[in-house]
Design a binder for these strands. Sequence first.
DNA 1: TATGACTTGTCAAATTTAGGACAATATAGG
DNA 2: CCTATATTGTCCTAAATTTGACAAGTCATA
Lengths: 96, 96
Amino acid sequence: MHFGERIRELRESQGLLQRQLAADLEIDTPMFSKIERGERKAKREQVEQLAKLLQADKTQLLSLWLANQIFDFVKDEAFASDALHLVIDWIKNTEK
Amino acid sequence: MHFGERIRELRESQGLLQRQLAADLEIDTPMFSKIERGERKAKREQVEQLAKLLQADKTQLLSLWLANQIFDFVKDEAFASDALHLVIDWIKNTEK
DNA sequence: TATGACTTGTCAAATTTAGGACAATATAGG
DNA sequence: CCTATATTGTCCTAAATTTGACAAGTCATA
């Protein structure tokens, strides 16, 4: 489940139109459409606004949003998995 | 073990100076120094050159290099671990 | 103190990217 | 066929990033 899909799911389940949410975010509908389809990425600020507007868990949306960006960054890399695991290990050790 | 540390390790174990490798990469020594200390990131092309110059495993160096960049990207994020795990799952499923 | 190796700080050019505007097109329901 | 909704495609610009050059600094050691 990618970020945009989740936004669409939340939006449709509440009977809202792209036009309405786009207005709240002060962007046009084409832009909102692109965000839902993952063609453009939302700003952090917009993610937070969306969490409020859609009464969704901010933490979860932000994780999804961040994951999307990481994915876009590594998706064409042959060693993406190796690298990701390395990073997880590094983070484990800085947390300790 | 971060990318720059690994480069330094390889370089020193072979008795090479920053100056020498920097010349091969056609950058100045301050720049090379920064790469080793992780203050600047190498270009992919430079990583490949370094693998050759230092007779190191290219795959391994590239993984380390990519991991470094991901780490820099997520290090200040509260949900970095969650996001990373999500990405790993996504990648697993696109591979299948 | 002189030298060589490395580090630090700052600057600027060049490039990239983000993020949006807008026009045109599709698609589905009434 | 009309209308509302959503999508697609193209273009633009401000902002950020990248990448390197250079000057000046530290540090060890001969």
